[in-house]
Nucleic acid binder design. Sequence first.
DNA 1: CAGCCGTGGTT
DNA 2: TAACCAAGGCT
Length: 371
Amino acid sequence: MWDDAKIKDFQETLLTWYDSEKRDLPWRRNHEPYHIWVSEIMLQQTQVNTVIPYYERFMDWFPTVESFASAPEERILKAWEGLGYYSRVRNMQKAAKQVVQDYAGQWPQTANELQNLVGIGPYTAGAIASIAFNEAVPAVDGNAFRVFSRLFEIEDDIVKPQTRVIFEHVIQQVISKERPGDFNQAIMDLGSSYMTAKNPDPEHSPVKRFNQAYLDGKELEFPVKSKKPRPVEMAYAALVIETDKGFLFEKRSSKGMLANLLAFPLLRVDDLKEKPDDELLTDELVIKLDQWSQENLNQPLVFSPLEGQMVKHTFTHQKWLIDLFVVKTKAFDLSYFPGEFILEKDFDQIAVPKVQQKIWDRYLSLSSNKF
DNA sequence: CAGCCGTGGTT
DNA sequence: TAACCAAGGCT
């Protein structure tokens, strides 16, 4: 471990660099906890350039924590459309209601208390506490893992949850007690510029003389990170049911993929083998779908396979292979089905996940090709 | 703890 | 293309 003089040297070197080179980001205009919070949740597993336009629009739509807490669910989901990990925004609204009701609109000011809010874990609590309230606590994200594993040649696997605690202890030793928020943000800027995962530039880094891994010629050996398994392939049938009142959307279950979002009904067909030409066995499947419609919609629909290439969509853990089946019919009673008919002109009012957009695009191209 | 939860960009 | 990466948290 470094001695006090080296720690002081590191802090001054880092913060001097940060003062002159820090990125101009919309959530760095002030230290409002609401602003910091929104940006930190958006930035979870999401790149800065992706977040910026979402952040600007979010603040336009929901200028205060009170306005966000009272917004309709469809509106907050729409604000999140395309960002992914949709439970983040639903948890955000729960947390906002906690702040408004349990804390009378006054945010808790320590990392420990902040973790009582839904969706705020160790990293986000540290980030908000240090940036908004100047508490000298670490904020261990992917950048911090990358930067400090290299500086100290820490070989623990960063995929393992307990490794975070090791890094917190190290960072607690070197963090600036005067400017903890700037210190944590400087580490993030460093991790996304000179100390990136794949093409780092340690030679020109402001902290290169503190970078033991670089000095030893082992920059790319850190951080140590075990590999994740490849996505599991799953076959689906997507049902495009068009009526005089609009297309049928299903409100998805509150658990699992794309929870609570609206989408065309999707049926797992994992017991059916794919044909070599990349299609499901449609004859068998059409019969199953007809049965499904009778049992779930109380409506004897007869589906037709929409011939053409299947839709493929890869998530972190799953790869979906989707064939389309269509039927045009008269609107029917939806009392026993969790869903609704939506006219095409109203599609832009609801939040749809990427895979749903792909299915719609494929439907449009295939059905227009017929004529 | 290990598995789950989206999307867009890069190589 | 497949694999990996990006300001993680929940169960």
